[in-house]
């Protein structure tokens, strides 16, 4: 069972590493499907993480942490929305600004409050999300093959993990089976047509931006309230950009987004697992190669060498109503 056990361990850690990617990727999907390009995911993960750390530290309550994390991320999202929708700004410039302000501000304020170089105090157990054990996990766990899968892959994660996985079908349903979703997708492809039908482009894009803020905020909350139990400057460590890569790789669709994020999560888990391991004939594993793989794959896909990734047609273009 050595190999199988190792497989389960890497798989389980891959799921944990994939959760923030899934949430951030879906966030980007909502925003970009409505025509608002968002390269500020990275910064907003930090804002969500920092907000939740502040909320949970001062109240000792995990829900207050969650609320503050999500709320502060939505505020940042709205700034990006205001620039992109009302000011018709270059959305790349706006996203870059969000990333910089978030990166600097979280570290600055964290350092000003606790004077530990930006790190927040370790959260007590009751201010973190605990793991949820599925029924009979321990009993079924001893069954070969199925047992470990049930006990260690499906069961034993925290609330946000399950929410993240639920968000995938929910996003799919909302985008493809509701009137709101149809309109939202239309506004990302041809806003003039939506406008002609008497539907507000502005309202649709703002709602997409808010949904984006909530989801990417959860990604940040997860890092603090589910994983590390403290905030540290720059702790998003490029996850926002990996999520962006996953979004491109998934061609802006929810289910492929889930698959890509899981793949990137497993690659990450594998890189950690293989650190310093000597492989026969290859020698030490070049861990950096595995880490760079998501970026390389995305570039290759974007270049049209394996399939073609075509963004929503109106993404990145501010809508100007005819005068």
């Amino acid at each position: 069972m050595g190999w199988f056990d190792a497989f389960i361990v890497v798989f389980a850690s891959g799921i944990r590493l994939a959760v923030p990617l899934i949430l951030a990727c879906l966030a980007g999907l909502w925003s970009e499907r409505s025509g608002v390009v968002d390269i500020g995911l990275e910064g907003k993960i930090l804002v969500g993480a920092f907000g939740s750390a502040v909320g949970a530290t001062f109240t000792g309550d995990v829900w207050a942490g969650l609320a503050l994390g999500v709320a502060s991320t939505v505020v940042f999202s709205l700034v990006h929305g205001y620039a992109s929708i009302d000011q018709r700004a270059n959305q790349i410039v706006s996203g870059t600004a969000i990333n910089m302000v978030a990166d600097g501000l979280t570290a600055l304020v964290g350092n000003a409050i606790w004077e530990q170089g930006g790190r927040t105090p370790q959260l007590p157990d009751q201010a973190q999300f605990g793991t949820i054990e599925w029924p009979f996990a321990r009993e079924i766990g001893s069954v070969p093959i199925v047992g470990p899968i049930y006990q260690r892959l499906l069961s034993g994660h925290d609330l946000i993990t399950y929410v993240a996985f639920l968000m995938v079908p929910l996003t799919y349903w909302a985008l493809y089976s509701t009137r709101f979703g149809l309109r939202l997708r239309a506004v990302g492809e041809n806003p003039a047509a939506v406008d002609t039908a008497g539907i507000s482009v502005r309202a649709l894009r703002y709602s997409a931006v808010v949904i984006c803020g909530v989801l990417v905020g959860l990604a940040g909350v997860y890092l603090v309230l589910s994983q590390e139990a403290y905030f540290q400057p720059h702790m998003s460590a490029g996850r926002g950009f990996i999520a962006l890569a996953a979004l491109v790789f998934a061609k802006w669709r929810p289910w492929p987004a889930l698959a890509t994020c899981l793949l990137f999560g497993f690659l990450d888990a594998l890189a950690i697992r293989l650190q310093g391991v000597e492989l026969p004939a290859i020698g030490p594993v070049p861990v950096q190669a595995i880490e760079a793989l998501p970026y390389v794959l995305t570039v290759v896909l974007l270049a049209g060498f394996i399939g073609k990734a075509i963004p929503p047609r109106a993404s990145g273009i501010p809508y100007v109503k005819e005068r």
Binding site: Q87, A89, N90, V93, A97, D103, G104, G117
Partner: peptide, 21 residues
């Protein structure tokens, strides 16, 4: 209290106001 992160904040605000807005 005013760590070097303040410079990154200023930088971001410059990009926001001189660029996006």
């Amino acid at each position: 209290k005013i760590s070097r992160d303040m410079i990154v904040v200023i930088q971001g605000l410059v990009v926001l106001f001189a660029g996006a807005l």
